[in-house]
Design a protein around this nucleic acid. Structure first.
Lengths: 352, 352
DNA sequence: TTGTAAGCGTTATCAC
DNA sequence: GTGATAACGCTTACAA
């Protein structure tokens, strides 16, 4: 025997009021006399009633859903954002997640699918700066906030870290340690946030009158990335330090160094991006640029919920500061350093 | 000017048919003559129409949603499951995710919230074996599949890895290398899958006539876990090898070893659980027990979609094999703690 | 095969 | 302050 869950009418009947009054008690949109309100509340408890969100939404146009669209659900940074937002939502909103798999076409189609549910709001990490899907979102008039990747000229709220500063922080640390030959490991310069991190690094070098650091674009394919970095090492002499611009390139740098037996920090210094447990769980814990993920989630929701509540102030662009966690993967460059040939490394390895 | 998105009536009007016919063309529930069908299809294209999923669901009772409830959205294993499932879904279903934060009470409340959306199906990684929320799910008659954590006596489909074998695989490898003093690092023995991994390990030892390995329960709090492991090291003499039973305890083992300056693999061998990029991106890549995550996602969806389609065969319990990735964090135990055998000596000599 | 009309469970409107 | 009643946009009897 299937128990049909009770509807607003059942509650109304039991409380001897009209369904409208039940609705008013529950949503609080209109005042109800305490006496009737109490009757309704007990009926709700007895019947274990909860409003069908679908019917309620169908009528009101306001679905208690926040949609989150990210480029990749296997990237811990993106999932940590999802997690951080989820923790802010409590019981009042559900989360729909979707992944664009880094593809603008999929992004558009997922956007359509997700918007069809008329979510109260949308948080999106676009897979490209121009975010062509934006038109779709705006046509739907769904409140939305762009996270992480931000060109800045879009008319939407954005929440990201101060990428230039992140770049500066790392470069400054490396320069302070005496490094002059730094390799900046980027994923793709087609992303504004990556370019900003590069710019931050370059800026510090220029300010000191030093030549700009080299930049290598490793892409998003893990296998290919290691290969590209290895090729770079072969073509040019290895740098004395690597500044990774994402968690992925941190991993790539580590992989290539492990393959070549280059030891942290004395042969090469490495400064990672993001801050995960595995970066600390090492004989040589990684110095890293930590993004304030929890905080990002919090602000993302703060902005979005403001928009949901009807805030129509001009777009705000929140820039959160990163923090440098200085640990042991960065140190002064080796004495003999300055451009070294791969051969020289063998000699050095013998010392270790 | 706000463009109201077109409804089924607009399509019907443009195609000069009834709304019912439009519905029948789109859902395919009833046959429609090719001529009208074509008219409808072009109208749909012209108006860029998509049925409002909420209205459609309200009427039909079938929401194109798969809900996924996990204990922790910051644990990469759980998010990798979400990701793997998401990739199977294509465009026909949306994903609602929720986290129980490892708390049965929250689990129940999230379950209620999520079920209120009448998802077509539910995938759940319960936070405890008895899964008290189960009653809720069954009362709602939502098709569901339990993943990862499985007592086996629940009347639901389950998909997990062969945990005993996972435990055996690791223990066998360690024994083959000559280890006799192994520490098994578990999160909590209240979880059946963890107990099974333990049992697998113990079994191998018993079969060889060796004393059972020690087991330490580290819990789910990262800070506390390191502390507990450190205490264990202090109380008993450190083992020659650690067999981690989850990705979290792998990290804990690594942290404690780093803190104490214990070097892999010659002072202690470590076999990790799960297989992430960071485990390979090390001077000493980690030997690890890899769970077939993609495959789990695939089977999870295969089972769930079968149930959604009405399959009412008795519950199936799928056990997927783990794979051991032998790398360099495991080696023969150091001279002093190892029974002498020609084979072990040879191995040691090679490593010289 | 197709159209008409009746809901699905809620909230908004508008009388009272 | 409260209660009928009419939508919301769709699917599904049922009639044609």
């Amino acid at each position: 025997m299937v128990e049909k869950s009770s509807s607003i009418n059942d509650v109304a009947k039991m409380a001897r009021v009209s369904p409208a009054t039940v609705s008013n008690v529950l949503t609080g949109r209109k005042p109800v006399s305490p006496k009737l309100a109490k009757r309704v509340e007990t009926a709700v408890k007895v019947l274990d009633y909860r409003a069908d969100p679908l019917a309620s939404m169908l009528r009101s146009g306001d679905a208690k859903i926040v949609a989150i669209l990210v480029p990749d659900l296997d990237n811990p940074f993106f999932t940590s954002i999802v997690s951080a937002v989820e923790q802010c939502l409590g019981n009042s909103y559900e989360v729909i997640v979707a992944s664009s798999h880094g593809d603008e076409f999929i992004e558009r189609s997922k956007l359509k699918a997700v918007l069809a549910w008329r979510p109260a709001g949308l948080i999106v990490i676009p897979c490209s700066d121009d975010f062509p899907g934006r038109a779709l979102v705006e046509a739907s008039r769904t409140p939305y906030v762009i996270a992480d990747r931000v060109t800045g000229n879009l008319g939407a709220d954005t929440v990201s870290v101060d990428n230039e500063e992140a770049g500066r922080l790392a470069a400054q640390h490396l320069i302070d340690l005496g490094h002059r030959h730094i390799l900046v490991a980027a994923t793709s310069l087609r992303l504004a946030n990556i370019r900003q991190r590069c710019r931050g690094a370059s800026e510090v070098f220029r300010a000191k009158g030093l030549p700009k650091p080299a930049i290598v674009e490793l892409g998003f394919d893990v296998e290919l990335a290691s290969q590209k970095l290895a090729e770079w090492f072969d073509r040019y002499s290895p740098p004395t330090a690597i500044q990774a611009l994402t968690n992925a390139t941190t991993l790539t740098a580590l992989t290539t160094m492990a393959e070549r037996g280059l030891r942290l920090p004395h042969e090469i210094s490495l400064i990672g991006f993001d801050d995960y447990a595995w970066m600390r769980a090492r004989a040589t814990p990684l110095t890293a640029i930590a993004q304030p993920v929890r905080e990002m989630g919090r602000i993302l929701w703060e902005r979005l919920s403001a928009r949901i509540k009807g805030d129509d102030a001009p777009a705000k662009h929140v820039l959160l500061p990163c923090e440098i966690k200085i640990r042991e993967s960065t140190a002064s460059p080796p004495e003999s350093s300055r451009p070294r040939s791969p051969r020289a490394n063998a000699a050095q390895a013998l010392r270790g």
